[in-house]
Design a protein around this nucleic acid. Structure first.
Lengths: 123, 123, 123, 123
DNA sequence: GTGGTCTAGACCACA
DNA sequence: GTGGTCTAGACCACA
């Protein structure tokens, strides 16, 4: 299930990307599974098809899904995580920012680790 | 010291906010310390003054700094972290996304915890 | 033998055309040889018959194969290459693009010539 | 200069990508040079801004150009060709197809090599 | 039926 | 002024 938070400042297409990735990691979407067509998903969540298309294209670039001409869109079979230095650096940066943000609302290290474990157990 | 990555997709004003917050948390900037004026900082890092101004305004809204008319801008004295549900939810969301991103480049939970501790030790 | 890469961005019908042309040039398919019927090939490589049909039609237009009603499809007897300005221009264009693409992944002229000779020796 | 062939089957945004890459390789566009803004180029070649935007975004993904928020688009400074197996395989494939196409219009190996050298000398 | 391309046009954040 | 996002809607190639 994909839900969009229209009040979020995060672009819709990014929300879709994250939700689908999440579903793949959780095993809700398995390799080879067919995703709803661009138009189907568009009408399901009442979003413009172009926006869905943009999300699908980015997911394909990341090798998370495969778009097959005239057939549809599928969860990728051969997903192999590739250690990417660029993105590792980004993750570090984001993590630092989370820690700083947390500090500013009074959340300390231990609470953050608890939160971390909690999220992991839900995946 | 504030360094800006102009190629980053992160807006410059957000980069400034983060860097200043980071310096406060690290103790490099202490309560009462005077920050460079908007124009000073602007010429220091060759950034449009409007951008610096936006960053300072947001930092003031967060009570991280205080702007005193005719005197200058200072690190806030009375900073008290306030548990904010809204932002706690955001942090959770961001953390989940980091975990998902990390998974996609083959970084597992333990490595992520190591990274987490490493970042904390540098603050 | 014809193998199809369903993940390729190249349309299936074009892949079929290329594979058949390649087999003719390599001499695996000789003038007068009978090609599998549309339905046969369709079930052989599990592709929609319409797609095979489209490929065969284009090959016939190029005079590479001949369709004889009620008899079947055959590699053309009287194949005479015809210098076609239009297509020569296309080939030039494609070659330029290959050179540019190669440059962008760090492949220089000599390596490209080696590659060129290698491919020729395999035909 | 960027010219679009509207009769070509090649998508407009791909034509733009190729033309810009070509100009970079030829040295007509140098690192740090400012590209026309999305709207400028759009009105110059009377193409919809969205299409220009798509081309620029792909070029950025390839590290050929850099888009700087609110400032404009520039030829990348730090272009480093990265040997990419995936794309090397594609180039091989394309080269094989050119050789096959050339054969079908009666162009032999030597003529193709001459053509190859000619194109290189014009870059 | 499937996704890909393109246009026209609006609104927005950022510098 | 700059690019980014999104909508609405058209047309097309492909399977």
């Amino acid at each position: 299930m994909i839900t969009i938070d229209s009040r979020s400042s995060k672009p819709i297409y990014e929300q879709i990307i994250e939700k689908i990735k999440e579903n793949i990691i959780k095993g809700i979407l398995k390799p080879g599974d067919k995703l709803p067509s661009v138009r189907e998903l568009a009408s399901l969540i009442t979003i413009n098809p172009n926006t869905i298309s943009k999300a699908y294209n980015e997911l394909e670039r990341m090798n998370a899904i495969e778009v097959i001409r005239g057939k549809g869109t599928f969860v990728a079979q051969n997903f192999k995580p590739t250690m990417d230095e660029e993105r590792m650096k980004e993750i570090k940066e984001q993590m630092k920012n989370i820690i700083i943000e947390a500090h500013y609302i009074g959340v300390d290290k231990d609470t953050l680790i608890d939160l971390f474990n909690e999220i992991y157990s839900q995946l």
